[in-house]
Write a protein that binds this DNA or RNA. Structure first.
Lengths: 360, 360
DNA sequence: TGGTAAATTGGCAGCGCTGCCAAAAATATG
DNA sequence: CATATTTTTGGCAGCGCTGCCAATTTACCA
């Protein structure tokens, strides 16, 4: 069933007015559809100098109350909107913050953006972003494009950048914030948590709970290097315990509930005697959970499930998902605060929380 | 269990070099950490004029192959990154596109951003965004802030803007795109689908399936006006059929799985004889689904569930969710394409698809 | 009231780039 | 070989704003 069809054009954008044109100036202005009021025009209308208008609008420097009122009245009357492009060019340092993120489908990154944008908006900074699709080459191209806007800071996910990206960022003079990972050397500021520690603790938890025949279902680890780090530490910890990973299933493509479901199905077809499965993240784990639900596999007695991220939905399913909750929004907030405060280079570990849940 | 602690500062951002300073110029440059290479410097290094460099870099106008090589070599050697701020100021029209969206938690908007950003990146446009939290006042403030960047277009959700916002946008001279809603008058371009039609079809479907005692669980409708429109048409359709809505439960706050779960629980406590429940969206519906699962309520025989959005996860649960799938990514793509092409004012209805699923 | 310190204010040179125009060089034409 | 065209190129005036500095006005003190 398909609804909808191409709609008609709505002529709301308006054409040129047909009458009442007093002068050529008026005519031109109307045809341009452009209310490009400049600071100089405001100054003239208010009967003051340009710099005075600038001072009043930025509330910077000194001016009398009367001047202030006259300027504000002119601004109001003319509908003046300051041009930040010009302002940024004239002054030093922009109030743009550039985000170069791997994906917008992965809630991890939209959570970070959410946390950051709230702080940035409060401080009158403007967020700009681009999406790399986990492609390091694209990251480099997009980071270059971002630097062209001379942002106050560039925020990136993790440490895995091409040499070109790293070199360029270092040379750019703007702040660089690497997010969501702490297992590596920061270029400038880093905010997040250790994915290696998360993998380690996940394994330790399953071992503590008595699971011994453990499998893994994950998505493309070459691209999502943070998931790769978790998995690698997870395996190391299992090995150290003398109960190595029994089987793994890597699905092609991005993490998703559907992929988790199919991944577990395929894993179980090959390894029938597992007692627990570690998933690359909660989306995947939920897929696994639904597979068990549909197949009548008892959780956790027949099979335990463990995820990563601590999504809200994991707490709403009949058996709360056992997982690790990561401070994604806080990562964005702290990162933004450090940028706004122009804090010195540093690495901030926000840690994570293991949620015992009911699935493992 | 809490892991992690404040990390040590990583001195990677570097301090000033202590020796080998040849001149004051060098010293100053180093302290600035700023490799601000300008077009003029490139021109000098390449032994050509500024406008020639500009032409080569933009591949616009004519220049010889030899000149091109010399310029590119100088660019490479100096690590020049063009300043788009200056470029935008000097030329007419920016390549910025501003998004003013209600929320980043709601996947609807990140899907739209995703679709749009892919198209924008291909065309060398840059996306900037701010989040209104469904607050019309904030929308106005943020839209003003956006206009200060003189974007090529402003993209907003729906038609419900304050008079001030509408007036300002109209006067701004930049393109305005209203997304995800077609039930109203567009300011310029509109891309999306009819929420009223969606509500109507949802009701018609439930009626067709034989449900007669229908309830509703929704979230804050004053803020999410699109959900409000769906609900209102849904009710109208039920009324017209002579089987009006039996009961409704509006939860405070944003839509979420948890809220859907609690909402259904409260609704069923008041109205025990419902045979179907319409949810404000899939997140809420999933919560309802999980509530039934946990309470042993048979779906759809005891209670049918119907959602809105067509999230992927709805297809991965044991019984695929009955819902309406909306073209969110496509909405973003089309909107971006129209802006890039500077298309005339128009309203494009992308429609939606009713998914029969197994829950209603 | 005269004189100095403090508070206001305006003028104007850029910020780095693009766009226009005329000059110069290369190519074509008679 | 001179002239007409066409292609390349450089110079320079802004784009709209900020920051510096000097000029002007006002406030304050003896």
């Amino acid at each position: 069933m398909k609804n909808g069809n191409a709609g008609d054009g709505a002529p709301a954008f308006g054409g040129a007015p047909e009458s009442l044109l007093i002068s050529d100036t008026k005519l031109t202005m109307e045809f341009k559809h452009q209310a490009t009021v400049t600071l100089a025009e405001v100054a003239q209308a208010a009967g003051v100098g340009e710099s005075t208008v600038s001072r009043v609008l930025r509330n910077h420097g000194s001016f009398s109350g009367r001047t202030r009122e006259r300027v504000m009245a002119a601004v109001e009357r003319l509908g003046y909107v300051p041009n930040r492009i010009a302002g940024t060019l004239a002054s030093t340092g922009s109030r743009l913050v550039a985000f170069v993120i791997p994906s917008l489908s992965n809630i991890v990154f939209s959570d970070v953006l959410r946390g950051a944008s709230a702080v940035l908006e409060e401080n009158h900074y403007q967020a700009v972003f681009s999406v790399t699709d986990y492609d390091p080459g694209k990251e480099e191209a997009l980071a270059t494009a971002m630097l062209a806007w001379r942002p106050a800071a560039v925020m990136l996910a993790g440490y895995e950048h091409t040499d070109g990206t790293a070199k360029m960022l270092r040379a750019s003079g703007c702040r660089v914030v690497e997010l969501l990972d702490l297992d590596g050397d920061a270029l400038d500021i880093a905010v997040g948590f250790s994915n290696r520690a998360a993998g380690r603790e996940s394994a330790a938890f399953l071992i503590r709970r008595g699971y011994r025949r453990i499998g893994y279902v994950g998505h493309d680890l070459d691209r999502d290097t943070r998931a790769g780090k978790r998995f690698s530490s997870f395996c190391d910890t299992l090995d150290a315990n003398g109960t190595p990973l029994i089987a793994r299933e890597i699905v092609a493509g991005a993490s998703s509930v559907e992929n988790g479901k199919q991944g577990l199905e395929r894993l179980l077809a090959r390894a029938t005697d597992l007692d627990a499965v570690y998933f690359s993240n909660d989306d995947m784990a939920l897929g696994g959970y639904f597979h068990c639900l549909a197949q009548g596999i008892a959780i956790p007695s027949q099979l335990a499930i463990f995820g990563y991220n601590g999504l809200d939905i994991g707490r709403a399913i009949p058996q709360p998902l056992s997982t690790i909750r990561t401070p994604r929004v806080a990562t964005g907030q702290i990162a933004a605060q450090l940028v706004v405060a122009n804090a010195p280079p540093q690495a901030i570990d926000l840690g994570f929380e293991l949620i015992e849940g009911a699935t493992a």
